[in-house]
């Protein structure tokens, strides 16, 4: 299947979960990343159960605490 991850089209095997995608994309501290799937937030406790499908669009939002 083809999914769009952070704006880039990528090929992944069917049945991929959000948790598996976070691992495959080498996302740092995945437990603190906000994920949206087709313009809806994915609840943090359902990354394991949320299965992605062809054409899905996934975005990652990271904590960025600096500023001073």
């Amino acid at each position: 299947m083809t999914i769009t991850v952070a704006g880039n089209k990528k090929e992944y095997p069917d049945g991929l979960t959000v948790a598996a995608l976070l691992a495959a994309e080498n996302v740092e501290t995945p437990e603190y990343v906000t994920v949206s799937l087709n313009d809806d937030f994915v609840p943090g406790d359902s990354f394991d159960q949320t299965v992605l499908g062809d054409g899905d669009e996934v975005e990652f939002m990271y904590f960025m605490g600096g500023g001073r």
Partner: peptide, 16 residues
């Protein structure tokens, strides 16, 4: 807060 809900635990995410 819609996006990030709660602060991460102290020192869980690096600062500058």
């Amino acid at each position: 807060r819609c996006v990030f809900r709660e602060p991460p635990p102290p020192d869980a995410v690096p600062t500058c």
